[in-house]
Design a protein around this nucleic acid. Structure first.
Lengths: 220, 220
DNA sequence: CGTACTTTTGAATCGCATCAAATCTGGTGG
DNA sequence: CCACCAGATTTGATGCGATTCAAAAGTACG
């Protein structure tokens, strides 16, 4: 059983008492989890490359990535790996809550911290707690909206239009303040960091963009 | 008010009585809508380029695209249009159900048919009807999973890897049966149709892929 | 102070977009 | 039934832009 090694709490004492203040700040998705459900959570520290579950395993937990990175992976017959989802924060494999068994593998692709909630208790809390349920619904709805926007963006074929799209969809009134490095931004835009740097430079030189540190504004 | 022209039913009689059998077949998302809510729906036929709502309008309806295409659009100061979401079937602007006003424009980008549900009744049905609520939640969760997979796919930089990813994530056991034209598939993969045709040809010639009409299988 | 990572620029290459055009296909109407 | 049309499919030639490999300079952190 893939999760066996996490069934006991092997955290140092100060870590097992999770700081929910900090968590809900960095992961807004966690803010709506009711007290009763928090009490049932397990905190797990992972190195890179550890397995969370394998395809076919019964669905036992809901997973929340607190830090690091976890990925859902399927292997093809050529031996290659296909990444279905990468999570650098927030829930992973939400859709599995409905199923009884996992349809792919999950591994930690970067070292970090995970929160585990028993699936039955999670489903039950969604059923019983109207506030949690409402929050969960709008969380999913927001996620859908955000992902749709990202798909539209990735369908654009030039770096410049992806940047413009990002500013329009993620920013306010033509201005975004990046909360991440440009290298990470490049990855989110589906570009190499070099391509992003060069595109930014070009657009700045054309005076279509104003960049001040992490504040990036489109010039009308 | 953008929706004014749809407030009366200007459909021919045979269209105003919507065929729910047909609808739930082509749009599984509609299958879970309870009878009481269906009774309140309005059917709207749209030409291309009609406005559903504008940014700032109060949220009055939930929209389900039955046929054709509707898009959420935001305009930037250069006069360009940025597509936030395109829907060729299923709900559009789900996330707006939570808000009181729309955060973007919506227009029909292809002629087709829409279903409108009063937002208040929709929210109420979600609250009252446990089955509808459960269905809605797993609908959203599935959508999130699907969109995450598509984002991962679009982050791949070659046509061949996108095809492989599609087969692994959408297919079963390395086989997909396309329900759409290759041109439409190309658009979903973020490629031009020419690039898709050529990539398919290359992979077939390398004997990594078996194509029989709409049945496409990866060769181990 | 050194190490790891990000930021930045350069040069060469490759793959996709683009424009063009021919063929094939399904469906419509004469 | 055939002519015809719109759209999908397929192949070709060309150019551009992103990737890739390489390397230098800047920056954060212990």
């Amino acid at each position: 059983m893939a999760l066996h090694r996490y069934d006991r709490d092997h955290m140092p004492p100060d870590k097992s008492a999770l700081n929910w203040e900090e968590l809900t700040f960095s992961q807004p998705s966690a803010a709506l989890i009711p007290e009763s459900l928090r009490a049932l959570s397990k905190v797990v520290e992972l190195a890179a490359g550890e397995t969370l579950f394998r395809i076919g395993d019964p669905v036992g937990h809901a997973f929340l990535v607190f830090s690091g990175e976890a990925s859902l992976i399927r292997r093809d017959r050529q031996g290659g790996e296909v990444i279905l989802q990468r999570s650098r924060g927030g829930f992973i494999a939400e859709a599995s809550l409905d199923s009884s068994a996992y349809h792919c593998d999950a591994v930690s692709t970067k070292p970090g911290t995970l929160l585990l909630f028993p699936a039955a208790a999670f489903r039950n809390a969604l059923e019983e707690d109207a506030l949690f349920r409402k929050g969960w619904q709008s969380l999913l709805a927001r996620e859908v909206r955000k992902l749709r926007a990202q798909c539209e963006r990735l369908n654009l074929h030039s770096a410049a239009s992806r940047i413009a799209h990002y500013i329009e969809s993620e920013g306010v009134d033509g201005v975004v303040t990046l909360a991440q490095s440009r290298k990470a931004w490049a990855a989110e835009l589906g570009l190499t960091h070099e391509a992003l740097y060069r595109a930014l430079r070009r657009i700045q030189d054309a005076e279509m963009l104003a960049v001040q540190g992490n504040r990036i504004a489109s010039v009308p």
